[in-house]
Design a protein around this nucleic acid. Structure first.
Length: 477
RNA sequence: GUCCCCUUCGUCUAGUGGUUAGGACUCAGGAUUUUCGAUCCUGCAACAGGGGUUCGAAUCCCCUAGGGGACGCCA
């Protein structure tokens, strides 16, 4: 049977890095197996779901380069792919369990439930649902209805051990009686996660459920449901979660956590996919820079680890830099333009622009870094970045160097890398100043910075007249 | 509290009874260079603890500790 997997986000916010990793694993596995990758929107939480979130998630998925074979926007033979459009299906399936005596109406209010739960915990008993409404008589039901109570439908969980063979965890067993009768249909008729998930996965003929291991303890509930329906259970693969540096679930307070934010800062989708893939998975080759195609070719569940991984933005930065350095200049230029425009820089013609990008390319970790790294080419004059730079400019030898430099400038035509080197050589001979004492003042005058790209390259881009102006500025009359 | 899961350098990981416990990021040092970066080289740094099993355990078993997750009319 051909592999069918799904990514089922709930549209209650941005696409989170952890969810993105789950999506990537599903997608990579599907492509590796020549299977089908399905996108399903789990919007049963009316309060928190929004169309805007759904659009954002689809956009982020596209940005990552993931494509799906079936989904809300592309359709497919098992639709609809939005849970809010499948309510009759859930209703029908809940009715069926009701008729077969595998589910029951429960009239307990949230307050009553909470109170009994607290009491149970205080007395050292299980915090699970206590089965209060499991065997209501018709009269009792009528009484509750008369009170105006709206019932939920609960699934009667059989008292048996539930175990399954998780692809990454191995055999996992939950002892009988550990799972309370859980709600499958809320009072407002909306299905709950565990129910909708099973109905959909069953009907959509999902063969492998690949998801974060925070769902591990949901799995026995879902298996009980599969068994109640008489459906074959899919294979489960619970992948470890991604944690923040403090070893807790990655959240906003750990900094950027949404794909959108990473995109905004100028991370490359290939780099993000590559990095995320390496969290809890490794290539047999031991290599770390892996193209999407290699990820697909080499993916194997046996190489997925069981322990959670901490998200390390420093390593992501390094990897993103590797991808930036590998990129050809025209392409990188295209990607940098929006950032430069946003910074308000007046862009020169394409040829010069590509020269600038080529020069700063090795120093970029993220695309947004281009703003700071290329500033010197876009502003009229850069102020010395610190006191030490000012001191350098005011040295006695510096004046000699600058005078000599300006004289030599008149002897050349256009400023080029070669001409600049030649000038510096002559200046050195003329003044006797060399090394750092020679180069640093010139660098500071031209760029304001004590560090930066190879100076001849900078000078060529700046051009003869701008070099003259910038040097002249520091010459004492 | 109950149940489930996890535990190798600071971080990501390799490792499936016999290895000087390997690699990557970070960091430090060196080479190169006018500087930073990039690049190359070198180095620092780990089997959570305790019991077993075994000639031999990072690898198998048990216990403890720590961490995570579930116990929602969230997903």
């Amino acid at each position: 049977m051909s592999v069918r997997v799904r990514f089922a986000p709930s549209p209650t916010g941005k696409l989170h890095i952890g969810n993105a990793r789950t999506a990537i694993m599903n997608w990579v596995f599907a492509r590796h197996e020549n299977g089908t990758f399905i996108l399903r929107i789990e919007d049963t939480d009316v309060e928190r779901s929004s169309e805007e979130s759904e659009r954002g998630i689809l956009q982020d998925l596209h940005w990552l380069g993931l494509n799906w074979d079936e989904g809300p926007d592309v359709g497919g033979p098992h639709g609809p792919y939005r849970q809010s459009e499948r309510l009759v299906i859930y209703r029908e399936h809940a009715e069926r369990l009701l008729q077969e005596g595998k589910a029951f109406y429960c009239y307990c209010t949230p307050d009553e439930l909470e109170e009994r739960k607290q009491k149970a915990i205080a007395e050292g008993r299980s915090a699970n649902y206590d089965g209060r409404c499991r065997n209501l008589t018709e009269a009792e039901r009528q009484a509750f209805e008369a009170e105006g109570r709206k019932p939920v439908i609960r699934f009667h969980v059989p008292e048996v051990d539930l175990s399954f063979d998780d692809i990454v965890r191995g055999e996992v067993t939950f002892p009988a009686g550990q799972i309370g009768d859980f709600i499958i249909l809320r009072a407002d008729g909306m299905p709950t996660y565990n129910f909708a998930c099973v109905v959909d996965d069953g009907l959509m003929q999902i063969t492998h459920v690949i998801r974060g291991d925070d769902h591990l303890s949901n799995t026995p509930k879902q298996i009980a449901l599969y068994q109640a329906f008489g459906w074959e259970t899919p294979h489960f693969a619970h992948i470890p979660m991604i944690l923040g540096p403090d070893r807790t679930r990655l959240s906003k307070r750990h900094g950027a956590t949404s794909v959108e934010e990473f995109a905004k800062h100028g991370y490359l989708p290939q780099a993000l996919i590559n990095y995320l893939s390496l969290l809890s998975w490794s290539s047999e080759s031991g290599e770390e820079i892996l193209s999407v195609q290699r990820l697909i070719d080499e993916f194997d569940f046996s190489r997925v680890s069981k322990s959670p991984a901490i998200f390390d933005v420093v390593k992501l930065n390094w990897m993103n830099g590797v991808y930036i350095r590998q990129m050809d200049v025209p392409h990188l230029t295209d990607l940098c333009v929006p950032y430069l425009k946003k910074a308000g820089y007046k862009l020169p013609d394409r040829l010069v622009l590509e020269k600038i990008i080529r020069v700063v390319q090795p120093s970029l970790e993220k695309l947004e870094d281009v703003i700071a790294k290329s500033e010197m080419f876009f502003i009229d004059e850069s102020e010395p970045e610190n006191e030490q730079a000012v001191v350098m400019l005011n040295r006695e030898s510096t004046q000699k160097v600058f005078w000599s430099f300006l004289r030599q400038l008149d002897t050349i035509g256009q400023m080029t890398v070669e001409q600049f080197r030649k000038i510096m050589k002559v200046v050195s001979e003329e003044t006797g100043v060399m090394g750092k004492d020679l180069w640093m003042p010139v660098r500071i005058a031209l760029t304001g910075k004590m560090h930066g790209p190879d100076l001849p390259l900078v000078a060529e881009i700046l051009g003869k007249e701008k070099c003259r102006r910038l040097i002249k500025r520091w010459v004492l009359e």
